[in-house]
Amino acid sequence: MKTQISNSFKTWNFTVQVMARQELLGVAPRVLRCLKPKLIGILSADPEFVLQHADSCSIVPRHVYQQLKALKNPSKQACDILDHMIEKGPAVAEKFLQMLKGKELQETFPELLFLKELPENYPCAAEENEVTRKRKQQNLEPEENIPNKRTCNKGSKMVKEKDLMRVAKDIGHSWREIGTGALDIPSVKLEQIQENYPHSHVDRVFAMLRCWSREKRNEATADHLHYLLSQGDWGLSPDSIDFLLETS
């Protein structure tokens, strides 16, 4: 009887450990996705170094390695490396995340030291904190008293092409980071836009913004675009995008 109880306890304990491990692994892609804009900025300094280590750890298949290695734009190379790790699932994402926390990557990119301080439930905690912050703001400040509110209101006007062109003229060389990090446009689509407009930066950015507008349809409001472009490290100057908040 004692033997049966002991075996049952061992089985239960093993099952709990496996479930905990699976839950932890499931967090890794979300961590990479949440930190994607920041990681692109850091890894763009030497994405080739990251790729070589990913290859040595057998995280990327050889054909993917060759495709990523052929990219000449550092920001795009870093972005595509991250996209691959996220899309390949929890196990690959966790392995890549641990690689970023390793000694060699930490020494080469000192900015990655923050990864070791992240809580295990980082994405959940970040989302919960954001929700809490918004609720507190709503409780402390009536909606009509919040100046320049940067949310997507149902009554907001739809963004027009002339608005997109005006914004395009104020977006610089970080347009790819804005496309992937703020507008959630696939890097493959951005590469296609680059090929379609090789000689005009403004036309490239305009095409990217129009792609976002068509993809979002009813959600492509001026307020929504203003909110997206105001966030993250790429936050544009208020002087260049505040016109989107105008009601007329």
Rank of each mutant, 00 (worst) to 15 (best):
S8F: 10
N13P: 15
N13Y: 08
E23W: 05
L24Y: 10
L24V: 01
L25P: 04
V27R: 06
R30I: 01
L35A: 10
L35S: 09
K36Y: 02
K38Y: 12
S44Y: 01
F49T: 00
C57M: 10
C57V: 01
S58A: 14
L71V: 12
S75A: 14
Q77P: 01
A78S: 04
A78K: 15
C79V: 06
C79H: 05
I81N: 03
I81V: 09
E87M: 07
K88L: 05
G89W: 10
A91W: 09
V92A: 04
V92P: 06
A93C: 08
K101L: 03
G102Y: 14
K103L: 13
E104D: 15
E104K: 04
Q106R: 14
E111N: 00
L113G: 11
N129H: 12
K134P: 13
K134D: 04
K134V: 11
K136H: 06
Q137E: 07
Q137K: 15
L140D: 15
E143R: 05
E143W: 01
N145Y: 11
N145A: 11
R150C: 06
R150P: 01
T151S: 03
C152D: 14
K154T: 13
M158H: 08
E161V: 04
K162D: 13
L164K: 01
A168K: 05
K169M: 14
H173Y: 11
E177T: 01
T180P: 08
A182L: 03
D184I: 15
D184M: 06
Q194I: 03
Y197R: 09
Y197D: 05
R204S: 00
R204K: 10
A207Q: 09
S213V: 03
E215A: 09
D223F: 03
H224N: 07
Y227I: 07
L229T: 00
S237M: 02
D239F: 04
S240I: 09
I241V: 04
E246M: 08
